[in-house]
Write a protein that binds this DNA or RNA. Sequence first.
RNA 1: CGGGGAGUGGCGCAGUCUGGUAGCGCACCCGGCUGGGGGCCGGGCGGUCGCAGGUUCAAAUCCUGUCUCCCCGACCA
Length: 514
Amino acid sequence: MHQRVVQIVREEMNAIGGQEMLMPVLQPAEPWRKTGRLEIEALFKLTDRKGSELVLAMTHEEAVTFHVAQVVRSYRDLPLILYHFQVKERDEPRPRAGVLRTREFIMKDSYTFDRDRAGLDERYELHARAYGRICDRCGLEWYKVESDVGMMGGHGADEYMAPCAAGENDVALAPGYAANVEVASADAQPVQLPPELDGPQRVHTPDATTIEALVGQLDVPAGATLKAFPVIVDEDAMKLVVVRGDHRVNEIKLRTALGAPFRAAGAQEIATRLGPPGYIGPVGAQLPILLDAAVAGNGAGSYVAGANEADAHLRGVKPGRDFPYETVDVRAVVAGDTINGLEIRIEPAIEIGNIFKLGTRYSEPLGATYLDESGTAQLVWMGSYGFGPARAAAAAVEQNADEQGIAWPRAVAPFDVELVALGKPGTEERSFAESLYAELQDAGLDVLYDDRDAGPGEKFADAELLGCPLRLTVGRRTLGAGEIEVQVRRGQQQRTVPVDGAAAAVAELWRTLS
RNA sequence: CGGGGAGUGGCGCAGUCUGGUAGCGCACCCGGCUGGGGGCCGGGCGGUCGCAGGUUCAAAUCCUGUCUCCCCGACCA
């Protein structure tokens, strides 16, 4: 089924003008140094016997850009769509989840090369449509979501997600909206705030180092408290991120907002710069304060915040009046938040593909330029597009399995039909099954023929586990009635077809399946 | 990186606490029965107990080290 997915992808890539090629996995380290990606922890690095530095490629931007830089000279050489199916190697912190997260996997990656942003947008759109067709043809339930650009850098990215319980990503969905929670943004559910005061008032709150404990003591909703999250940006400056007490910081959104790497501040750093951990807050903090939009947007009312001293909080805190801030959107959205007044839900999903607008992120460091009509050198505008056949197959399994096993979509099933012959070898039903096997193949079907000397129960159970769309049974009972039995795997409805013209009837039935 | 678990015939496991003849199911091989939901009877093959050291008369079992795998979390360019 991996090869069936591959062939679907290949056809759709060719249909948008892609040229298939093959690039090496083992590559010199130098181009990776030039793009700054040699530092990536997940990149396998090694040396050969002469001590030359090599890497095992995790994607192929460096290789393809280097290649294009050699070959493309003129605007007349563009646009270009190149792709290949190749092994990717990634030193994952923790490989897991079977086929979903492995150190080594095959990915289709394509790369587009254009003379400008408008060309890139065109090539990107071609891929978006091709990916939609690929997902449909693979029989998947899927959606396209906005995503974080992550390690790739660049100007925008979307992911293709197949919802299922085994998924490792969470996606926020509302009518007309779909985004990975790493970038999702929504309107928070409203909260009843305590009335305003003339200024912050200190309240005694022993052992209230968690929002839960604090809420228990003060009788205010968690959403009326402020949670302070001190971070060290670039191993240098400390900043204080503040979100509503009932919200959580999403670290990907925060990294995006900061525009730089960060880490959570340690207890000692907090104690030195602010106050006792558990009691810190924005009022009086001599730090830049980043206030989440869910707090900053509220007009009336006031909040409870840490007082930066032990066993004390402040009530009546008003952002702006009591502390200066910069507004950011860094909270993780939760189910029940709204977008345009419509509630969102959050679902797990498998990421099966992603598409990135790279721009000149790679063409610049690797010198991929062309000469325009005026003879001026210009940087090539690039896009990068990944698709994981194994993940698509995994999603097809997860979305179509039942108690008995897999129920493959027709397009990606390992075989079209499983033919089960009952009876002892040498019997009439066996010899009929032999001839039916040949006729089915002549009718253009891929057939798995179970001619093992095994009991019927064993064969039926195996057929259902494997999950071919149709199961044919040739047995003495139905054969005597001039029929063979057909089971549609999905739903497991049984029917019979006459022996005469059976192969053609089965082929016809197969065509009606999804 | 933090927490937890597991390494014993091909596969799945028991035995380890309390040291003393390595065991069970499945699979496999042989003979036979059965033949529409993993059926039955009989007879067989197959294991340096992850690895290395130590304790002991004696180690799958106790001790030390080490490797690998799995799960949860962190992380995931």
